[in-house]
């Protein structure tokens, strides 16, 4: 039999992008937005998560490994795809390119983000994030990272529904594109609102 490993790698990549990576990102942005309710409420929700049992194992199996796989295999896909949006400027072909650009941005952003938070050696709390966004370059990098990852999530969900044979016809794919556009805007707004909250308290 012919090799079918590529098929499984690709399908696993598609599945993990949604479960758990997208689910985690949506949850993460939502929890972060408790920062808009003040430092105290934010620190409470962080402590709530930190108090979960088996946290290290959950983090490793359900966040770190899937994220690593989706990210690294995604890089491979981004760099083996062809790009011809200059010649064929149709909307979907441009989205094809933006999906890969946003993926690469998100990858770089997540590595930096983990480096400056989870693996920085400091305990996560409001002041730690506030100190990061105090630097305008870092603040804008985080804004770009949030918007790019929200885009990658929404557009990825659009593709997921096709890769799993859910939205089959052109009409359903169009409706799903509008819905995903909405998800992008909502997630971006949630994420940016949190960043602004971290930034403003210091000012």
């Amino acid at each position: 039999m012919e090799q079918q490993k590529d098929f499984w790698f690709r399908r696993l990549h598609s599945l993990m992008g949604v479960i758990p990576v997208s689910v985690f990102l949506a949850f993460h942005l939502f929890v972060n937005s408790t920062a808009t309710l003040g430092a105290e409420r934010y620190n409470e929700s962080v402590a709530g998560i930190a108090g979960l049992p088996f946290l290290k194992i959950i983090e490793f199996l359900f966040i770190f490994l899937p994220l690593l796989y989706h990210g690294v295999y995604g890089m491979y896909i981004a760099f083996t795809s062809g790009y011809n949006a200059g010649r064929y400027t149709w909307f979907r072909n441009q989205m094809f390119v933006w999906h890969r650009i946003s993926g690469v941005i998100t990858f770089i952003f997540v590595v930096w983000h983990l480096w400056t938070t989870r693996f920085s050696g400091n305990a996560a709390n409001f002041d730690m994030v506030a100190a990061i966004v105090e630097n305008p370059v870092q603040f804008w990098f985080m804004i770009i990272g949030v918007v790019a990852s929200a885009f990658h999530l929404a557009n990825g969900l659009w593709g997921f529904l096709i890769h799993w044979g859910v939205t089959v016809g052109p009409r359903s794919q169009k409706i799903s594109a509008y819905a995903m556009g909405g998800i992008w805007l909502i997630l971006s707004a949630v994420g940016v609102s949190a960043l602004l909250a971290f930034k403003n308290t210091l000012a």
Partner: peptide, 28 residues
């Protein structure tokens, strides 16, 4: 699995074949 949904195919097909519909149906 190599399809990345750029959907250029359905735009250029001279016979107006619903290629993206076929691909999604076959994905299923």
């Amino acid at each position: 699995h190599e399809c990345g949904n750029s959907q250029n195919c359905v735009q250029v097909c001279p016979k107006n074949i619903p290629l993206t519909t076929s691909i999604a149906a076959m994905n299923g």
